[in-house]
Design a protein around this nucleic acid. Structure first.
Lengths: 221, 221
DNA sequence: CTTAAACTAGCACATGCGTGTTAGTATGTG
DNA sequence: CACATACTAACACGCATGTGCTAGTTTAAG
């Protein structure tokens, strides 16, 4: 039987995905058009459409690829051990990985925004992936701030923490960080990276310490 | 001398502005196209372009009109006196006027978003009007929470408060409220109006009370 | 080498956009 | 009534988009 050239579809889609991510960084999710991505990848639209039947499929794939990329890049960075500075300083440096404070993280934030935009237009059934990931991260941070050991299995952080104060302050911090990121991007003239970092630390200082925490009075005489 | 029919340009522009606001509510600022607004108003594009030379002029006018409308609608509502409930409850009900908790305020939030989007693309020289208005509101709220009398002149609230803690917590609250609004709109499945209201109250409870406040221990036995 | 299948490149069509132009209409003064 | 002017409606052009279609090219089995 005759068999023609075979192409690894998954690999071609991945190539297209990378081109599409570059387009998102330049023009946002709305710029992810069939023509635009094909041009960015150096293909013709006809070729592209052998791997994505229409724009919707293309965007859906790109959003999925973006989510995976972000999870691989940001979450591990937030989990790398930090030994310097006070507890607040350590937690702050973790949370800052989610904030658009420099070019690299501004790019990542633009990618998160594209995911959020897509999820707003096409609500996923199991709830927002991006939101749940970020909530888990903040939950871990607040738990650490209150003296709890980090969980071993990352999947455990997806579940509510038994300490209700951890849940509450994780929500407060998560909301605050979202607002901080949004203000840095939308009104950079009013909120600089420096003020954002300061505000973050002020909020963390206000988190009530847990009964297990032995550093509550650390900086006081 | 012959004088043809005269039309009140300002009034026509205002008519167009109202149509454009309806378009923003339906499709966002990007939906404010010459054709789209003309159709919404029941005009032809040719007529519309006698009052707005191009799309930029149209959008600039609409953003200005929207800002004015919002200032007239939201700010006074936040200033109406509240006598029931604890201080936290009173402040919460003021701040909630800024949150997209019901259909009316969701509409207003969509309009604010359009203003922010415009200001991001065309940064105003004196800083973001929307941002400064909101910061002043939150400053007033925190000041009240710490026992200060409300200022007489609304323009005074645009200046920093002498109490540094007021400035700090106004910034924290402002950021938090922005995040809350963004989460309600972007991930409504995760953050409902009810949880948002609860989170707001939890944050307000955490604001340190000022030396002038005589209600600090109000709810304690 | 032949050939069937997979792939590629490009074109065509319909739609929607901003904007410029132009013919036609309404209106108030003379 | 006549007319100059403001206004209205419609069209035309160029551009970008999504999507369907088709002729040509590559590849590997027979």
């Amino acid at each position: 039987m005759n068999v023609p050239r075979l192409v690894d579809h998954d690999q071609r889609r991945a190539e297209l995905g990378e081109a599409a991510i570059r387009v998102i960084l330049r023009e946002g999710l709305a710029g992810v058009t069939v023509r635009g991505v094909a041009a960015e990848a150096g293909w013709s639209t006809g070729s592209l459409r052998h791997y994505f039947r229409n724009q919707h499929e293309l965007q859906a794939y790109v959003v999925q690829a973006t989510t995976d990329t972000l999870r691989r890049r940001v979450l591990p960075r937030a989990q790398r051990p930090r030994t310097q500075g006070s507890v607040v300083e350590q937690i702050a440096s973790i949370v800052e990985e989610m904030l658009p404070l420099d070019d690299e993280r501004r790019e990542e934030y633009a990618l998160w925004s594209a995911v959020v935009e897509w999820e707003r237009q096409h609500p996923p059934e199991g709830g927002s992936v991006a939101w749940n990931d970020q909530r888990a991260l903040h939950r871990q941070c607040i738990a650490a701030l209150r003296g709890y050991e980090p969980v071993r299995e990352p999947s455990q952080a997806m579940l509510p923490h038994p300490d209700a104060q951890v849940e509450l302050w994780a929500a407060l911090l998560h909301t605050f960080v979202d607002g901080l990121a949004s203000q840095i991007m939308n009104t950079p003239g009013q909120v600089s990276a420096g003020t954002a970092a300061q505000l973050l630390r002020s909020l963390l200082e206000a988190v009530p310490r847990g009964p297990l925490d032995d550093e509550s009075g650390r900086d006081r005489p």
